[in-house]
Simulated assay, not measured.
Amino acid sequence: MKLSEQMLPTLLAQDLRQYFQPMVECYQQRLFIFALRLTGNAQEAEDIVQEAFVHAYLSLKKYPAWRVQTLKLQPWLYKITIHSFDHHVRGARLQVVSSGLFEDSSVIEMEERTEEQPEIIFETQEQQAELEALVAQLPERYRLVITCYYFEQLSYREIAELLDLSLAAVKVNLHRGVKQLRMFLQAQTLVRDKA
């Protein structure tokens, strides 16, 4: 039986041992891709996600049932993953990595869009890879906010909580990052037009 994300906090509060694995299965892929974008290394990303789930389990075990029931699991797990990343690679610079490097992600995208023509799928993946490469060139403060907002679909509030920023700082960094991306795209277009 496939459990909905909305049901998981209540189920975890009732029986952590039984429902922890379904929670891991629900979020493992997303957290791995998120960690991979941060580290640029699949092995480090796996280690970070594993460490994050261990911390999540230990925290859930300590929390009273009412607190587990009110958790917003996705942002909470992303925050734990960020802390694991910080712990794992202190002082290292963040890197955004194309999800194309993660083999399963392209397979998932292909399966979800089997009705599309192969040329359209290839073009979309190529555009996504180009965009992610441009995001990787952004300063760290913009890169992380853009990754959380556009690739992880987190809300402004969730990003603010995740990164310990004010809502205004999230919006400013997102706006400035998008502005820089537009400049990168314009420069790239000029280079292509000249070639």
Rank of each mutant, 00 (worst) to 15 (best):
C26I: 03
L131A: 09
Y142I: 02
P118Q: 05
E123W: 03
T70I: 02
N41I: 08
L138E: 11
I159P: 04
L181I: 02
Q43C: 04
G100Q: 07
R113P: 02
I120A: 15
K72F: 07
Q117I: 10
S106W: 05
Q186M: 10
R192P: 02
G177P: 06
D104L: 12
I48P: 03
Q21L: 12
Q117R: 11
L144H: 00
G91N: 11
V49E: 00
V172G: 03
E44D: 15
E126K: 14
L138Q: 02
F151G: 02
R157V: 11
I108T: 08
E132F: 04
L31F: 04
A129E: 02
E115F: 02
E126N: 13
R192G: 06
E51I: 07
Q95E: 12
V89Y: 06
G100D: 03
E140S: 15
R90V: 09
K2W: 07
V24Q: 11
A65G: 06
E123D: 14
G100S: 12
K61R: 13
E119I: 05
L190F: 10
L162H: 01
R176Y: 11
L60W: 04
D104T: 09
Q180L: 15
E5N: 12
A45F: 08
Q74M: 09
Q74T: 12
G40M: 01
Q186T: 14
Q21N: 10
E5F: 06
L38N: 06
A195K: 14
Q180H: 07
Y156N: 12
T39C: 12
K179N: 11
E161P: 07
V54N: 08
K61M: 15
Q188F: 03
R182L: 13
L36Y: 13
L181Y: 10
Q21V: 08
S4G: 11
A160E: 00
M183W: 06
A133I: 00
G177K: 02
Y63H: 13
A169T: 03
V49M: 04
P64F: 02
W76C: 00
E5P: 06
E109G: 03
V68S: 01
A129Q: 14
F85L: 13
G40P: 12
K62N: 15
F122K: 15
R90D: 08
D47K: 08
E116T: 03
L11F: 05
L185H: 08
I33S: 09
E123V: 05
R37S: 15
Y19L: 03
P22T: 03
S106K: 09
A65P: 07
G100F: 01
A42Y: 05
R67W: 00
E46G: 05
G100A: 07
Q28V: 03
A65E: 14
L77W: 00
E111V: 13
S105H: 08
P118V: 05
E132V: 04
K194T: 09
G40Y: 04
S59T: 09
A56H: 07
G40L: 01
L138R: 01
M110G: 04
E161L: 10
F20E: 03
R113K: 13
Q180A: 12
I48Q: 05
A13Y: 05
R37I: 01
A65D: 13
